[in-house]
C-alpha cells in the first residue's frame, strides 16, 4: 500500500520523455494510466528509480479512423473512450466488444489501451485483441519512430520488445480487406477478475466469404496466444458449421493453458473451443441476417 521512493518527471513532449528514459538507462518506467503499474508499486513488486509520467503530454488522447480505414489509438486513449463509441463499434467490433470487459468501470476511466498492450499481461484483453486484428505499435525513441507488429511485440509474460528508451505512442490497426466483423468473449468469475480464458476474433468479410481472419487468446498460456495461423484456415471460406468447428478445434489446440485454481488445462481448452464456436456462429448468423 506504500510504494518505495522514486523520482518523478512529467515532461510536456514525447521527445523530453524519451530523453529522460534514455538518461536513466533502463531504471525508469513510463506512467500512463497507471492501473497496472501503480498497484505493482503499492505492493512493491516494482520499484523503479524514476517514473516518467506522460499524462501531461498534449495530443496523445485520441482514437480515430483514417480515411483509408486505418484505426489509430493514441498512448493516452483510456479504455472508456473506446466504450459506447459508435465509430469504434463499426470499425473494430472486436474492440467494442472487449472494451466493457477490461478490468472494472472505474479502472477503465483511467487505464490506457496502449499501456495495457505494452503491459503484455498473458491475461490481458488488449494484447489479444491487437494480435487478432494484426495491428502494430508505433514506438518512439531517440532516433525517431518505428513500427513493431504485434507478433513481434509481445514476446513473453509481461515482456514486450520496446527498448528501454522507447515509448509506445500509438497503436495502429490496419484497414480491413472488406467488411470487418468480430467479437470478444471472456470467462471471468466476477467483474475485474483476470480471464480464465478469453478469445478475440476479427474477420474481414467479402460477401459471405472470409477474406482475412485473426484469432488471439488470453489467459491460456504464458503469454498472449497468437492463433492467427489456426484462424487462417477460414480464409477464402464461408462460415459454415463445419468450417467453424474445424477452426475452433485448431484454435483450442494452439492454446497453451496450465492447470491452476481457475481450472484444468483441458477445461480452458474447452472454453476456448466453445467461445470460438459461439463467436463465429454468431457472426455467421448476423451476416446471414444482414444479407
Amino acid at each position: 500500500m506504500y510504494p518505495s521512493r522514486f523520482g518523478y518527471e512529467s515532461p510536456k513532449t514525447v521527445e523530453e520523455a524519451v530523453a529522460i528514459l534514455d538518461a536513466h538507462g533502463g531504471e525508469a518506467k513510463v506512467l500512463a494510466g497507471g492501473q497496472s503499474l501503480v498497484p505493482m508499486l503499492k505492493l512493491r513488486f516494482a520499484a523503479p528509480e524514476m517514473l516518467v509520467d506522460i499524462n501531461s503530454i498534449e495530443g496523445l488522447r485520441y482514437h480515430r479512423v483514417d480515411a483509408d480505414g486505418t484505426i489509430r489509438i493514441g498512448a493516452l486513449c483510456r479504455h472508456e473512450d473506446l466504450e459506447e463509441d459508435d465509430a469504434v463499434a463499426k470499425a473494430v467490433p472486436t474492440i467494442a466488444a472487449a472494451a466493457p470487459l477490461v478490468a472494472d468501470p472505474i479502472v477503465r476511466t483511467r487505464g490506457t489501451f496502449v499501456g495495457s498492450v505494452c503491459h503484455a499481461d498473458p491475461q490481458g484483453d488488449w494484447a489479444a485483441a491487437m494480435t487478432a486484428l494484426g495491428g502494430h505499435i508505433v514506438a518512439q525513441g531517440p532516433k525517431g519512430k518505428r513500427d513493431i507488429p504485434m507478433k513481434d511485440f509481445v514476446i513473453g509474460p509481461f515482456q514486450n520488445t520496446l527498448a528501454f528508451n522507447e515509448i509506445a505512442v500509438e497503436a495502429v490497426i490496419p484497414a480491413p480487406k472488406g467488411v470487418r466483423v468480430g467479437n470478444y468473449l471472456k470467462l471471468e468469475r466476477r467483474v475485474g477478475d483476470f480471464a480464465t480464458a478469453s478469445v478475440a476474433v476479427a474477420l474481414d468479410m467479402v460477401g459471405d466469404t472470409v477474406a482475412n481472419a485473426g484469432i488471439a487468446l488470453a489467459g491460456v498460456g504464458g503469454r498472449t496466444i497468437n492463433a492467427n495461423d489456426a484462424a487462417s484456415g477460414l480464409i477464402g471460406k464461408k462460415l459454415t458449421a463445419e468450417n467453424i468447428s474445424s477452426v475452433a478445434a485448431a484454435v483450442a489446440a494452439a492454446a497453451e493453458p496450465r492447470t491452476d485454481h481457475r481450472g484444468s488445462a483441458d477445461y480452458k481448452r474447452q472454453i476456448v473451443k466453445t467461445f470460438v464456436e459461439r463467436i463465429l456462429t454468431g457472426l455467421a448468423n448476423s451476416s446471414q441476417k444482414a444479407a
Binding site: L43, D104, R189, R190, V191, G192, D193, F194, H261
Partner: peptide, 16 residues
C-alpha cells in the same frame, strides 16, 4: 495462501 488479496480472493460485485 491463494487468496491473499482481492485479485485472488474474489468477492462478488453488484453485477454478479
Amino acid at each position: 495462501c491463494i487468496g491473499s488479496n482481492y485479485m485472488d480472493y474474489l468477492l462478488p460485485t453488484a453485477w454478479e
